[in-house]
């Protein structure tokens, strides 16, 4: 049984997750914005593992995701910070399987990732400094938080359940 779980996790982590990040299916989008998949993946992993392991996983995930973006803005700082926070939280709190808890943590994580990208873009592109609070950023930020909050309870809690089983 444990072997089957490991297989499932392996397939999910190595095939399903990268495929869904690359293809960004319209089915899982709100107004053209996909859920924040790195948060959905990192949240259960960090809750189950030590800060050391989680931080390494966040850096690896960040490097992987940065290869799919088109500017110098990086996922790594925000994912690194989140991995440390969540792994600390996971070590001290045992009752975190609740859907609502997972959803709230994913919302928080997506907000941190979104803010990090937003700030990096403002720092990188001088013209955005004069227009830093314009509609597109707010739209992308709020929509991503919303869709991740809706999707995370399903995927992240299932992943957490699988990690705990192994």
């Amino acid at each position: 049984m444990a072997k089957n779980n490991k297989k499932l996790l392996f397939i999910f982590n190595t095939i399903f997750l990268p495929a869904i990040i690359i293809s960004s299916p319209d089915l899982l989008k709100i107004n053209g914005i996909s859920p924040c998949w790195p948060v959905i993946w990192l949240l259960p992993f960090s809750l189950k593992n030590t800060p050391w392991k989680s931080s390494i996983a966040s850096i690896v995930l960040g490097i992987f995701l940065d290869s799919f973006t088109i500017s110098d803005v990086s996922y790594i700082p925000s994912l690194f910070l989140l991995s440390l926070v969540w792994s600390q939280y996971g070590l001290h709190n045992k009752k975190i399987e609740l859907y609502f808890n997972i959803g709230l943590m994913a919302v928080f994580g997506t907000a941190v990732v979104g803010l990090s990208i937003w700030i990096q873009k403002i720092m990188l592109y001088s013209f955005l400094r004069n227009n830093w609070f314009y509609s597109w950023s707010i739209y992308a930020f709020t929509t991503e938080v919303l869709i991740t909050g809706l999707v995370a309870p399903f995927f992240s809690s299932w992943l957490l359940f699988m990690y705990k089983k192994n």
Binding site: S24, N31, G32, S34
Partner: peptide, 14 residues
């Protein structure tokens, strides 16, 4: 077009 990200933080087509 095989993948589209036309509204999020990065806007590109594959």
């Amino acid at each position: 077009v095989i993948s589209r990200s036309s509204r999020s933080w990065w806007q590109y087509l594959e």
